[in-house]
Amino acid sequence: MSTQTTTRPSTGAEADEAAPAVEVADLVKRYGRSSTPAVDGLSFAVRRGEVFGLLGPNGAGKTTTVGVLTTRVTKTSGRATVAGIDVAADPVAARAVLGVVPQRPNLDRSLDARGNLVWHAAYHGVPRARRRALADELLERMGLADKATTNPDELSGGQAQRLIIARGLMHDPRVLFLDEPSTGLDPQARLFVHDRVAELAASGVTVVLTTHDMDEAAKLADRVGIVDHGRLLALDTPSALVAALPGEATIDLTLTGADVASVRGRIDAVRGIAGVEDLTGERPDTHLRVRCDGEAGAVLAPVLGAVADAGATVSQVELGEPTLEDVFIDLTGRGLR
């Protein structure tokens, strides 16, 4: 990233170096005559150089929030700034300091891959002499060096996504917004995109990504904001969010040959057990999830002892440490959207 130190295009407003990279305060967005707002009083701040994940189910308001921050959606009320620039008051200056990787590919198909990068740089006032070298360098870094003269139509989904990321970086933005960056990508392409995001963060670019992919959020984000119905439900590091869940670890048991109530009663009596859930549902065998206060391994032996005491036979044991997904489900519920 040492090569990314081009002169920034001069704009009406200069970015405020001391301000948070992104700040959203009491943001509300109501579309048309819709009765429920898409974003309903959202507030958060992203530190400079941070990778910030906005996590939420479909329709939670993530994309709308990014839309407001990237000047494509007008807010109803509240405040939104990028690099200290109020995006509503001065969208032109804001556009100069932010980069966008949209959810849907929107590459310019009248231009080849390199053309997409070079003209993007032209829109952003990168000096003519720098554009081509910068484009070739980013193509190289994104593994697209041999695709420079390819039309975007002929790129695979992963290649197109990498080209879009390269395009977003051509004007050396302070903040890069990635909307669902790896939706629809194969595992290799996903990993490549993840690596590039990590690299960007290491080089000091602030990254805001929206996703409904828990693993992606847990892996990439320094902090995660969980959003639903346009409101912020939780905001912390992934590990802190997980640690805050009641019953940190779980033991899943599949068993036969005993009365469920008596087995549950005996397990509940074991020290360090926070609770027992019956997940049997339609299955022929009894399926219990035991929530433990400490590590699952530490209480495994007494739990199995309790099951044996109740006269049941265990056919399968699975230890689980809770994930961000559990936090997510805990906060947003199991209902389908």
Partner: peptide
């Protein structure tokens, strides 16, 4: 195509 989006995001 939404191809115009990149130009809508230009500092203009």
């Amino acid at each position: 195509t939404k191809e115009i989006e990149d130009r809508l995001l230009a500092p203009l």
